[in-house]
């Protein structure tokens, strides 16, 4: 109980500091932020912007105002010469694309990594184990954008098996949707597969030496059951933690992969915001990502408890 409160306090603190940091990004801009954000137009536009962003107010006031807007879904605007467009509108379009990409990649990574981890652990030292580990080590050294570029070029352009670029909405055409997501998901998942597999293998090897595994064997259970029902769950805790922490890597990777495959997700949004110098948008997007990331880790923490009854009861 106490522990839960402390966790909650910590979470609140982290969220506070992260949003504070991002909320103040604009004031980090060298020179007059209004000048940087609206280089065109006249002074009255800038005055309006100063008003909107509370640039003349002291920091706490500005933060509270920003936070109030942020939690109510007002993420500021794109400031263009002709129109100002709310950032939130674009986010509602883009976020699902990124989330789907990360989801597919994460699922793909786990679906491949878990069996590989289990089998290599069971056959630790075998040729298969060594081969898989060496391959994984090599894959770890391939940046995901390199893989994306190569896949897009070889499979997409040269072989023409899958679209090298572009996105199809799930609601438009399910088959095409998945076809358009295969290469991006593989590019994003490959590195994670290697990480997860190695982690799971290490933990599995340790678990397989536990007494309760010998006891499970001595019950006469099949090897399969011993591995998957007895050994996997207690071995998956590190994997889970890292999978949660890795969402950060995944987010970063997704941004670049989206740009390479021109998937209209958050990455493309950030890319555009940066190239158009839309700092208000950048600030909101980063805040959004950070909050999402923190929440994912809270969720992982909860899953942790579901997987390990010892933690569950320790928390009361």
């Amino acid at each position: 109980m106490n522990n839960a409160l402390r966790k909650l306090g910590q979470l609140a603190l982290v969220l506070f500091l992260v949003t504070l940091f991002t909320a103040l990004l604009v004031s980090l801009l060298p020179g007059d932020p209004a000048e940087v954000i609206i280089p065109f137009g006249d002074e009255s536009d800038r005055e309006a912007l100063r008003e909107e962003l509370n640039l003349d107010d002291p920091l706490p006031v500005r933060y509270v105002a920003w936070l109030g807007d942020f939690v109510t879904g007002d993420m500021g605007n794109y400031y263009r010469q002709s129109i100002t467009e709310p950032v939130a509108d674009r986010v509602t379009q883009a976020a699902p694309v990124s989330l789907l990409l990360m989801l597919y990649a994460q699922v793909l990574a786990l679906v491949i990594a878990i069996p590989l981890g289990v089998i290599t652990a069971q056959r630790a030292g075998s040729f298969f184990d060594k081969f898989t580990n060496t391959t994984a080590f090599g894959i770890l050294a391939i940046p995901n954008f390199v893989l994306a570029l190569v896949l897009s070029y070889v499979v997409g352009v040269e072989l023409g098996w899958l679209p090298p670029q572009g996105y199809v909405r799930f609601s438009n055409d399910i088959g095409e949707h998945f076809r358009s997501m295969i290469l991006p998901s593989i590019s994003l998942a490959a590195g994670q597969v290697a990480v997860y597999m190695r982690l799971l293998r290490t933990d599995m090897v340790a678990t397989l030496q536990e007494d309760f595994i010998l006891m499970a064997k001595a019950k006469g259970l099949s090897n399969k059951r011993v591995l998957w029902r007895h050994a996997l769950r207690p071995s998956s805790l590190t994997l889970l933690t890292v999978a949660g922490l890795n969402v950060g890597t995944l987010v970063g990777g997704a941004l670049i992969i989206e740009i390479i495959f021109t998937l209209p997700g958050m990455g493309v949004l950030i890319f555009q915001a940066i190239s158009e110098r839309q700092y208000v948008a950048i600030q909101s997007l980063v805040a959004l990502i950070a909050v999402g990331y923190v929440l994912v880790n809270v969720f992982v923490d909860m899953l942790y408890a579901a997987l390990d009854p010892r933690i569950r009861s320790a928390r009361g």
Partner: peptide, 19 residues
């Protein structure tokens, strides 16, 4: 750590090289 490393780097690079 709550901000993905790449996102943080992008943001900082964008903000400080805004000129």
């Amino acid at each position: 750590l709550a901000i993905p490393q790449l996102v943080l780097a992008i943001t900082l690079a964008a903000v400080f090289a805004s000129d």
